[in-house]
Simulated scan of single mutants.
Amino acid sequence: MSEALMAHATQTIEVGSKSFAAAAKLFPPATRRSVLMLYAWCRHCDDVVDGQELGFGITAPVAHDPRAELDRLVDQTRRAYAGEPMHDPAFAAFQEVALGSQIAPRYAFDHLAGFAMDVGQARYETIDDTLRYCYHVAGVVGLMMASIMGAREGGFNERVLDRACDLGLAFQLTNIARDIVDDAAIGRCYLPAQWLREAGIPPAEIGLPQHRAVLARVAARLVDHAEPYYDSAMTGIAALPLRSAWAIATARNVYRQIGVEVKRRGARAWDERVGTSKAAKLRLLALGGAQALSSRLRARSPARRDGLWLRPGRADEAMPVGGLAADA
């Protein structure tokens, strides 16, 4: 059963996220297993709600009911935390990592709340509204990942959790910029309505070709907004075990490069899905290694996050970076 779960999780990440799959190989074996198990559950929940398979193509029947599916996911998550036998591979994987790594239940339910925002067709008026969505679908995944690497709420680790959440926020802002047109095709928009009004783009016309030049400027603005969150995340890698720091730095670099490419392409950013080449990934992998090593040579700074969005329940910004357990 254990080997089958690992095989399922590995296949899920290799198909569902080529960008993160490369970085995930850098984790030490035990951490990598837990990271893949968590990813398999996140991907499964997303697919179930959207009626997709590994993020591609609509596979659900006409009678697909997203609200009912979401209710089932919430119930299964509760049962997983209660220690009940899980027969679905994604939930068996989640149960293993959630209980083994002591992932706070509220993180998992906060993540499911992000899918509820999609089901309820939430609208985002300001960038803070967009960041709230980013927290639920990605920032909280960073918190769960940090839990896998040993961070717990309270004390010095609050700073580590802040940085992990910031990386998730940055990832999702990049994803939104890359996928604006694809999202518009299925009736979704995560861009702040305020920004669209300022750009003169009617919400119903986001995906139309005649708006691409102006839309590119909006996307560039979103990419720029992600930068301080990427910077904040980088200051946190010194608190991670070395191999985990290498993996996280590499993932940061790969996703950030996607945003850079979206901005560089301008109006052509949505002609095809933006990604990173194999050569670019290798270069960014090497850079991540150098960044992980150099983070050990610098003094750990208790730099504040002035002006950045605060995750729910986080009010104290005065704590310095804390250390985590060493790699296995």
Results as ranks from 00 to 15, higher is better:
R178D: 08
G16H: 07
L73F: 00
L293T: 03
G57I: 08
F115E: 15
A30Q: 13
V141C: 01
L99T: 11
E14T: 15
G139F: 09
A122G: 03
I148E: 06
L215W: 04
A204H: 03
W41T: 03
G266M: 08
A185H: 07
A164N: 12
G322V: 08
A239M: 07
C165P: 00
A213W: 00
L70R: 05
L310A: 14
K25Y: 07
L26N: 03
R273W: 02
P89D: 07
K18L: 13
F109R: 09
E158M: 08
I248F: 09
L99R: 15
L131I: 04
D46G: 04
A326N: 02
S295K: 03
L143Y: 04
G16F: 03
L36K: 09
Y190I: 06
L297E: 05
G155I: 04
D231A: 15
M86T: 05
V119A: 12
D179K: 09
L242N: 03
S34M: 15
P203L: 15
V74D: 02
Q52W: 02
D110F: 01
R264H: 11
A30M: 07
F171P: 11
V97M: 02
Y229D: 10
R33D: 11
A245H: 01
P228L: 08
F94C: 04
P312K: 05
Q257G: 04
R268C: 08
G168L: 06
D183K: 03
F109S: 00
P85A: 13
V321Q: 09
G51H: 05
L215P: 10
D271H: 05
L208Q: 06
Y135D: 09
Y230E: 03
V48E: 04
I186Q: 12
G139W: 00
A80V: 12
A299I: 14
V15C: 12
A303Y: 08
V214F: 02
L161Y: 02
G114N: 11
V260A: 13
D183P: 12
R43K: 07
V160P: 01
G289A: 13
